[in-house]
Write a protein that binds this DNA or RNA. Structure first.
Length: 883
RNA sequence: GGGCGCUUAGCUCAGUUGGUUCAGAGCGCUGCCCUUACAAGGCAGAGGUCAUAGGUUCGAGCCCUAUAGCGCCCACCA
């Protein structure tokens, strides 16, 4: 067996099996009416950049489910794809070009988009390569991209559909403007940061009076666009000024003092400057009071010609300084306070957004939200963990119309055409638009659609919609969506809306929200913090299996995971353990070549260890299966992990060694076959989590034909008839005896090579039988030479002792026993038991307890106390006999 | 201002129908061991009044209330 390396080396193994799976098209799903489909559509990674550890986690979870269901016999499709990620990708490419000294606008639209396609192609390859390295079993023959021809067709269809329904409209509204991208963005793309800023107090003189009105603002530069000052209608302090006019400093504009309930009397001075073109609330006030709208900004957030000459062309931050400076110089600055406020930043541009009024396309959401909310509340779609239902519900209730147009070049261009009178025609194609307009002289809208306007269609557009394909009929609705809770609004909610609107069905039956991967201090991983972990680095250092194992091990249902690099050692150690367990079997197969893993074992086996391990095995089968079905990945893994390591390796393999080495040929063969059978089951149970090592071992366990794979091996089925509580109890007893002897040996410093005798005393005949049949186990695992089992045994002089499960354990150690240590051991155990007995005494003395607790519970307590008392008596005798 | 989550061994965290050692795992730590699968390992240990204060209950890590600390999400407070 020299050719099987002692330490598991995953390097060549992982690539080799992935190629094998690809070669034999094992990830491929087909429309097969004789099977039940199981479908997952990937949350398409952005072609912005490479995948990070969060993606690794998300995709590991998906792969686990896909592999699990495939083994259960479902026709399983994992549909992979990538997202063009409009603003994000455009921003990245634009930054790159800038670094090369090139400007987007110089290049022009066509050339720039060409650059983005190149970038897309590079990162698509990289992303797919990463997914493959992680072992993802996606059906690559069905890979899609959100700007593919068909997915674009779907976008067109959806847009036209809503337009014709009257739900898509165009209008001048205040939007979140990203000065970096120079585009509108949706509310969801704004991230708020707490900023330590200032609150400036400005004095606006009242016209025809010596009085002034003091307003407070966090954005002084916007005062150049003020067209009113507002106070609360019930505010007595300002009653006399309502309806009057103030003179806007620096500008000289005469603006009204209006009364509006929006104004909070308590905040600042209770008077608010109103800038309808540059603040969402002021915008609404402007509408209510029919105020003048003065836009003072260019698309890059510098000031335009609507401000006094001195400020024109200034960047907004320079303008802020200059306004404050001028106001102070002219005596209009009253005071400055420190103030913490929330500033909206553009998620992609990472600059403060500028609310401004512009003409944009919107989608009306209220009608879409209703059925989508209902689908989740009624349980047609189940969220795991369930807590996210509340978040979802809240958003759905407060939903606002969706600004879907973007002033970008990278994306699906809006299918709206204008004639020279400015009339708009929405159509699926230029030809259709020309027909509608009755002219060929049309100009297409320059804007593109929000990225999510394509991704929200993906569950069905990836399957051919709007065409009625066979795939769509078979694989849709999908079974499960695995995604992060951070995109519940961006994506999950919208997919539900689109699914119901366009297919009349929910897009998925269940959603598993995986937690977010954070660093050790619980911070989100990010480039700027430099705390990210590259999954490929982890794979190179530890293997893909180790990566996957560790991620799942750390993930309780939907909880965020705090990850440090060293945690991946866990996965590596695990692989090594699995490998060596397998190696052990292989080594024995050299001398027992006829042993085979095929079985299952005969029902009439009498060997305690075998009955016991089979019982434990079936518990593990149940545990992992239930865990996966209920989205409790950590529990699922824990049950198979513990079974494998603690039961199979630590006990079972040790228990059978004696048989493997010393029994007759038939027993040897039976024994090894059972061990191999279990290994085969273990490997199948673990396969969804650690696909590579399990394939390697499964292939070596038996002669396999080319094209066979553990991927398609049936998932072990839980069989309750193998569960034997009686056998488990018996084994518990045997183990307890062994542990107690080891404990004695350890505390007396007896080296492993030195064997001792063992005397076991118990009055219980059944137990004596059990111990007798377990003689070999005791001898091997407790390193025993001579074994005596007797109801009337006497403790020899100079023996160490213990009492477990009612059995008195004596280890004769005359001459080497350390009496002081032994006394300490016994006394400690006596103290522990007496404390327990005291606790039970108190309980039983409580009349409320004896009166109200179920008889069963009371009996148990009594039995426990009796047991403890007897044990204490025996221990005391032993203690006394030490002299 | 609302909503959600977290607080359990030195560290990272498990623990859903409240009652069998339920007080656990991994890492770290202590002692022994290269025992013919595995030192990336084995065996045996040490270590926690389950954040705090009340409450419900015969009985609470688990249910309820409040408090503190940490984190996240949402909201128009200039």
């Amino acid at each position: 067996m020299a050719e099987i390396p002692k330490a598991y080396d995953p390097r060549n193994i992982e690539c080799r099996w992935y190629d094998y799976w690809l070669k034999h098209r094992l990830f491929q799903a087909d429309v097969r009416r004789d099977r039940t489909p199981y479908t997952i559509v990937i949350p398409p990674p952005n072609v912005t950049g490479a995948l990070h550890i969060g993606h690794a986690y998300n995709n590991t979870v998906q792969d686990i489910y896909v592999r699990f269901k495939r083994m259960q016999g479902f026709e399983t499709l994992w549909s992979p794809g990538t997202d063009h990620a409009g603003i994000a990708t455009q921003t990245v490419v634009e930054r790159q070009l800038k670094a090369e000294g090139k400007e987007r606008k110089q290049l022009g639209r066509e050339a720039f988009v060409g650059e983005v396609w190149k970038h897309k192609s590079t990162y698509r390859d990289r992303i797919i390569g990463q997914l493959q390295k992680m072992g993802c079993s996606c059906d690559w023959e069905r890979e899609w991209f959100t700007m593919d021809e068909n997915l674009s067709k779907a976008v067109l269809e959806a847009f036209v559909h809503f337009y014709e329904k009257g739900w898509i409209y165009k209008g001048n509204y205040i939007v979140n403007w990203c000065p970096f991208s120079q585009s509108a963005i949706s509310d969801e793309e704004v991230v708020y940061k707490e900023i330590n800023g200032k609150l400036w107090h400005f004095r606006y003189p009242v016209k025809g009076s010596s009085e002034s009105l003091v307003v407070a603002t966090t954005r002084p530069e916007t005062m150049l666009g003020d067209t009113a000052v507002a106070v609360n209608p019930d505010d007595e302090r300002y009653r006399h000024l309502m309806g009057k006019t103030v003179i806007l400093p620096l500008v000289g504009r005469e603006i009204p003092v209006i009364a509006d309930a929006y104004v909070d009397r308590e905040f600042g001075t209770g008077a608010v400057k109103v800038t309808p073109s540059h603040d969402p609330n002021d915008f609404l006030m402007g509408k209510r009071h029919d105020l003048e709208f003065v836009n003072i900004m260019n698309p890059d957030a510098s000031l335009n010609d609507n401000v006094p000459a001195a400020f024109r062309g200034l960047d907004r931050f320079a303008a802020r300084r200059k306004v404050v400076e001028e106001m102070e110089r002219q005596g209009f600055l009253v005071r400055i306070e420190d103030h913490v406020n929330r500033v909206g930043y553009s998620q992609r541009g990472n600059v403060p957004i500028e609310p401004l009024v512009s003409e944009q396309w919107f989608l009306k959401m209220s009608e879409l939200a209703k059925p989508a909310l209902d689908a989740v509340l009624s349980g047609k779609i189940r969220f795991h963990p369930e807590k996210w239902v509340k978040t979802y519900e809240h958003w759905m209730h407060t939903i606002r119309d969706w600004c879907i147009s973007r002033q970008l070049w990278w994306g699906h261009r809006i299918p709206a055409y204008y004639n020279d009178r400015g009339e708009v025609f929405v159509a699926r194609s230029v030809e259709e638009a020309e027909k509608k307009a009755g002219t060929k002289n049309l100009r297409r809208d320059e804007d593109v659609l929000d990225t999510w306007f394509s991704s929200w269609l993906v569950p069905f557009s990836a399957m051919g919609w709007p065409a009625k394909t066979a795939e769509l009929g078979y694989f849709y609705p999908t079974s499960l969506l695995v995604t992060g809770p951070d995109i519940i609004f961006f994506w999950v909610a919208r997919m539900i809306m689109a699914g119901l609107e366009f297919t009349g069905r929910v897009p998925f039956h269940a959603v598993y929200f995986n937690g977010i991967v954070r660093d050790e201090q619980g911070r989100k991983m990010s480039k700027s913090l430099g705390n990210g972990i590259d999954p490929i680095d982890v794979i190179d250092e530890y293997s893909a299996d180790a990566l996957r194992f560790t991620l799942v091990d750390l993930s309780a249902e939907g909880q965020d995971i705090n990850l440090a690099r060293r945690h991946f050692e866990l996965g590596r150690n695990f692989s090594n353990k699995v490998w060596n367990a397998f190696r052990f079997l292989e080594m024995n197969r050299d001398s027992i070549p006829r042993a085979r893993p095929e079985l299952p074992p005969a029902r009439d086996i009498a060997e305690l260890a075998d009955l016991w391990i089979l019982s434990k095995y079936h518990r593990a089968v149940e545990g992992i299966t239930e865990g996966l079905e209920n989205f409790r990945l950590h529990e699922a893994m824990d049950s198979v992990y513990r079974f494998f390591w603690a039961d199979y390796c630590d006990w079972y393999l040790e228990l059978i060694k004696d048989r493997l080495y010393h029994a007759d040929e038939a027993s040897k063969e039976r024994t090894l076959s059972t061990a191999l059978y279990l290994m085969d089951g273990i490997v199948r149970l673990m396969h969804p989590i650690v696909p590579f090592i399990t394939e390697e071992i499964w292939q070596r366990l038996d002669a396999r034909k080319d094209g066979e794979s553990v991927m398609k091996a049936p998932w072990p089925t839980f069989d309750r008839t193998w569960i034997r509580a009686d056998v488990e109890r018996q084994m518990d007893t045997v183990q307890a005896v062994i542990v107690s002897v080891r404990n004695i040996r350890s505390s007396m410093n007896i080296p492993p090579a030195r064997k001792t005798d063992l005397i076991l005393k118990t009055a219980d005949g059944m137990t004596r039988e059990l111990l007798k049949t377990s003689e070999r186990y005791l001898k091997t695992l407790a390193r025993i030479e001579g074994l005596t089992i007797d109801a009337e045994a006497r403790k020899p002089n100079g023996a160490a002792s213990a009492v477990v499960a009612g059995i008195e354990v004596f280890v004769p150690l005359e001459g080497i026993i350390d009496v002081k240590v032994e006394r300490g051991r016994l006394q400690k155990e006596i103290d522990r038991l007496i404390a327990q007995i005291d606790g039970i005494d108190r309980k039983l003395a409580n009349n409320d307890f004896t009166a109200r607790a179920p008889a069963q519970v009371i009996d148990k307590e009594k039995a426990k106390r009796e047991n403890f008392r007897e044990t204490v008596e025996k221990l005391k005798e032993s203690l006394a006999s030490l002299g």
